[in-house]
């Protein structure tokens, strides 16, 4: 299902406005004070840019690593254009058996085209040997 050919494949760009009520709900759920500065991990909720051929969640998948870089503070009310890209796919065997590692990158710009954040997730999913 997750073949190497997917490496480099991108989503369309998705434009979202960072809405106060969404940030408030996120702040309440995570237990952090609510103010106009968007909590750093809020960008993890930008899930609407889908990549053809990468259907998430995959059954049995877990989140291995997450990296987020900000080039400046993101604030409530801003509009962000973001897209996702398959940066890498590889298999590895470990204590959980043979697993596929998928590295997904998300890049966000503001509407002037200035880079605001980049993030990278490693998703680990069990390899399903397909019956021939």
């Amino acid at each position: 299902m997750l073949r190497k050919e997917l490496i480099g494949r991108e989503s369309e760009s998705v434009v979202v406005k960072i809405k106060p009520e969404e940030v408030r709900r996120f702040a309440e759920a995570t237990g952090v004070p609510y103010n106009d500065r968007v909590p750093p991990t809020f960008v993890g909720t930008l899930l609407h840019a889908s990549i053809a051929g990468v259907e998430l969640p995959i059954v049995g998948m877990i989140h291995g690593e997450q990296k987020i870089t900000y080039y400046r503070q993101l604030r409530i009310g801003e509009a962000i254009s973001y897209k996702k890209r398959v940066k890498d796919i590889y298999d590895r065997s470990g204590k959980l058996g043979k697993m596929t590692f998928i590295v997904l990158e998300t890049i966000g710009y503001d509407l002037t085209g200035e880079l605001v954040f980049s993030s990278s997730s490693i998703i680990i999913a069990p390899v399903k040997e397909e019956a021939q």
Binding site: G31, V32, I62, H63, E65, K67, T69, Y70, Y71
Partner: peptide
């Protein structure tokens, strides 16, 4: 949140990389 509580408004988290 641990970081932002500590930083207050004196700076920002410019990078946070974690392994679960």
């Amino acid at each position: 949140a641990m970081l932002t509580d500590w930083i207050g408004d004196e700076g920002i988290i410019s990078k946070i990389d974690v392994r679960f």
